[in-house]
Design a protein around this nucleic acid. Structure first.
Length: 419
RNA sequence: GUGGGCGUAGCUCAGCUGGUCAGAGUACCAGGUUGUGGCCCUGGUGGUCGCGGGUUCAAAUCCCGUCGCUCACCCCA
């Protein structure tokens, strides 16, 4: 084979489609219950939007974007995440005049040039939710419980949030200072990666998995103890609401997220079976982002959830997507004239809304029946010389094996009565 | 960008101390009823053993290179 799918991309074959349709169905249901409306920003935007929106220093911007020049010499980037595009859409279309919060969602492909591994692809699909224009903690709960209900509806048991607050521009710098100071004292024992994080990405020190760093990590100052009053209040109110709704969470002081724009609330939902990647959902609040992009001060909170990871996790946990296979007929012919009749009948049934298939090749009745069975047909409609003589077809119910002769003129009605 | 593992029929893999080693399961096709499926039985189609080079009388099997895949790190859904 000369051509292969590119690294980190995958084909979704027919067998996997039921998962996709099942999840889409649940997304439509839950978003509508919560009053979120769908928007679809384009898949590519000008590069600067993502550079500013996601953050110049982030790995995504520094090394993971699919950036290229179009024929007009403009720098274009395939979206590496949804949020920046949502912000642009929100500002450009004046959605800020609508009643707040403006609750939006979308589903679509995301592109990041990364080394693939279990549960990670260069093209993956995200379900993304954003609530814009209101900073009350009840909006945080709105978004979190949407995620919770979605996963529960899909069939996951015991969904628990990993929760943290990463503060705001008022209180975070001081905490980072403190953290850096603490780690500097232990700089000789920590791993090389942590050495680098120390000045480049200080918060990420808390995320290190290296054994030797764990004792240092365990003694590190906790951000919750260093939040400003506003952030403290926001966090406790959020916890209060979660308790009120009985949504399980676990406060994770080491949960930090890789995008610069997060403020206050950050959260993830973890799942089994995605390799070392455990986040099925990740998001948080970003109260400064829109302003940073040139808009009016607008708080926001949202999350992204990887559909592929949801599917992997469903398979891991034996959650199968229910699929409703409508009954359908398979036309079987023996002889040329019968084939004509079979083809005509198939088209007539289809035109009247009843699914019908027929065999293209002139194989034995037995082979055609096997074919019918393989396609999951409910009925085999057998047409041969005998049937043609009687102007009727032998209709066999493949579920219970019964068979009866039905006049051609009654066939359509017969099948329409099935449903 | 870094490190480990692997590349044999459409798919999942066995064979890999070099010499019936080109195999199994599954899928596909056909037969087991003269016009009737699902289970079962039998047979068949199907492979440059990733690619290139080297060692050898002889390589899927050893060595080198190369491409690809995969898992993990970084980071992320």
């Amino acid at each position: 084979m000369k051509y292969k799918s590119l690294t980190g991309t995958r084909d979704v074959l027919p067998e996997e489609q039921p998962y996709w349709r099942y999840i889409e169905k649940k997304i439509i249901k839950v978003t509508s219950l919560f009053g979120f409306v769908r928007v679809d920003p384009p898949i590519f935007e000008e590069t600067a939007l993502f550079a500013r929106g996601v953050g110049e220093g982030t790995d995504i911007v520094e090394k993971e974007m699919y950036t290229f020049q179009d024929k007009g010499k403009k720098s274009i980037t395939l979206r590496p995440e949804f949020t920046a595009g949502f912000m642009r859409l929100y500002l450009q279309n004046g959605l800020y005049v609508r009643t707040k919060p403006v609750k939006l969602y979308s589903v679509g492909p995301i592109f990041r040039y990364e080394r693939p591994q279990a549960g990670r692809f260069r093209q993956h699909t995200q379900f993304n939710v954003e609530a814009l224009g209101e900073q009350d903690p009840s909006v945080d709960v709105e978004v979190l419980s949407l995620a919770h209900q979605l996963y529960t509806e899909i069939g996951f048991k015991d969904i628990t949030f990993q929760l943290n607050s990463t503060g705001c521009p008022q209180c975070r710098p001081a905490y980072i200072q403190k953290l850096r100071h603490y780690y500097t004292k232990h700089s000789e024992i920590i791993c090389p990666d942590c050495q680098r994080r120390l000045d480049k990405n200080t918060l990420r020190l808390l995320d290190c998995k290296v054994e030797n760093c764990q004792p240092v990590k365990a003694g590190a100052p906790v951000i919750r103890d260093h939040l400003c009053l506003e952030c403290q209040d926001h966090f406790s109110a959020l916890l209060h609401y979660l308790d009120l709704l009985d949504k399980p969470y676990s406060i994770n002081h080491t949960l930090v997220r890789g995008l610069d724009y997060y403020t206050k609330t950050v959260f993830e939902v973890w799942a089994q079976g995605i390799g070392s990647q455990s986040a099925m959902c990740g998001g948080g609040r970003y109260d400064g982002l829109i302003e940073q992009l040139g808009g009016p001060p607008t708080p926001g909170i949202g999350f992204g959830s990887g559909i592929e990871r949801i599917i992997i996790s469903m398979q891991e946990q034996d959650i199968s997507p229910e699929q409703d296979a409508p009954p359908r007929a398979f036309l079987i012919h023996a002889g040329k004239e019968a084939k004509n009749k079979a083809i005509q009948t198939a088209f007539e049934l289809r035109q009247n809304g009843f699914p019908a298939l027929f065999s293209f090749t002139d194989r034995s009745i037995k082979a055609q029946l096997r074919e019918a069975n393989k396609f999951g047909a409910h009925f085999a409609v057998i047409i041969g010389d005998q049937e043609l003589e009687q102007n009727a077809a032998a209709v066999k119910n493949l579920k219970d094996g019964t068979q009866s002769l039905i006049a051609f003129s009654d066939l359509l009605q017969f099948f329409q009565n099935i449903e």
